[in-house]
């Protein structure tokens, strides 16, 4: 399934809850994209989970926050069309509000 995270990892622990669910795809949007930054507090956690989860981040939200060039390896940047495809390709999606 697709997990959508829109909160900064420095604000709310959505990422921990998602990773505990097992496996799937994770799309970072809005303030959620701060988790994608290289050298950030979540890097090890995300890298460690890459075997079970595929990570995506919404390009426009990365760009808006000036961090599009800081995304860690292994996280795929997607546009809105890619966002739609991720929703279509997964049977369910959960927004971790």
């Amino acid at each position: 399934m697709l997990h959508i995270i829109n909160k900064s990892p420095y604000d709310r622990p959505a990422l921990d809850s998602v990773l505990a669910t097992g496996e799937g795809a994770i799309l970072l949007i809005e303030d959620g994209v701060y988790a994608a930054v290289k050298g950030g507090a979540e890097e090890n956690k995300i890298k460690g989970a890459m075997g079970k989860f595929k990570f995506y981040a919404l390009t426009v939200d990365l760009e808006a926050r000036g961090i599009a060039d800081r995304v860690m390896d292994g996280i795929t940047a997607v546009d809105y069309a890619g966002f739609v495809d991720l929703v279509a390709d997964n049977k369910t999606c959960q927004s971790w509000l």
């Binding site: 426009v60 809105y80 069309a81 966002f83 739609v84 495809d85 279509a88």
Partner: peptide, 11 residues
């Protein structure tokens, strides 16, 4: 923006 993209994709 998501709604627009959904429509643009023909959904």
């Amino acid at each position: 923006q998501f709604a627009k993209a959904v429509l643009a994709k023909g959904h």
